[in-house]
């Protein structure tokens, strides 16, 4: 069955040839940097900030802000895709690879739950946050990451919808099974691959 055609729907340009393989289906290229969050922006003072790797209620490893800053960081330029349909190309971040963090905690867990100030959580397979695919980012566009965009530090997992890149992240809980995080409990997809349009549960 073919969809109804909206006569008079004056659409914009299609993505250019250079963008075509970078803009997932159903997305459009945004120039600004929109924000999506469920509540007030938390402001944790840096002296109180830690990043922890936890498992079964135990803290396997924890870094203070200064210790975290001393870890080797990388500059990465990536495209990001929000489930609300904006895609932003060539965003520039600075952060510590999750490989470096999980590498300091001995484990064989298949899943993590990222947890944040404000109670936000999101679930991810370990294989999606390792192998140079994810960072804990504290810099954006050459500046410290602004609080409204998740600062002082957020997860950056650019190959999944951006709600997986948890803002105000404070650590990773290692899990032996997959379980839904915050948005995943409210109808959003358990995995969130933008190239397969996994926006909502069942997509």
């Amino acid at each position: 069955m073919s969809p109804p055609v909206s006569r008079g729907f004056r659409h914009f340009r299609r993505p250019t040839a250079g963008e075509q393989d970078r803009v997932p289906p159903g997305q459009y290229v945004a120039q600004g940097f929109p924000v999506l969050s469920a509540g007030p922006t938390p402001h944790t003072p840096l002296p109180e900030w830690t990043f922890s790797i936890r498992q079964a209620g135990e803290t396997l490893k924890s870094w203070t802000w200064d210790e975290f800053q001393a870890l080797p960081a990388q500059d990465v330029t990536v495209d990001i895709h929000c489930v609300t349909r904006w895609t932003k190309l060539d965003t520039m971040w600075r952060g510590v690879p999750v490989d470096t963090l999980l590498g300091q905690a001995e484990h064989d867990a298949p899943y993590v739950m990222a947890f944040s100030d404000g109670g936000y959580t999101t679930n991810l397979p370990v294989q999606d946050v390792t192998n140079s695919q994810a960072w804990v980012a504290f810099g954006y566009d050459g500046q410290p990451l602004a609080a409204e965009h998740g600062g002082p530090a957020r997860l950056l997992v650019p190959h999944l919808y951006f709600w997986k890149s948890a803002k105000w992240v404070r650590g990773l809980e290692l899990l032996d099974h997959n379980q839904p995080g915050f948005w995943e409990s409210y109808g959003y997809h358990i995995y969130g691959d933008p190239w397969r349009q996994q926006r909502y549960a069942g997509d």
Binding site: P34, L36, S37, A38, G39, P40, P42, T84, W86, E148
Partner: peptide, 26 residues
Amino acid sequence: VEAVAGNLVALGYPAGRVKTERFGGA
């Protein structure tokens, strides 16, 4: 939303009782 939610927290509202939604997009 940023300004309102921040001000409500400053007034003593617990963050968990302040639900926010932003709109954007064209």
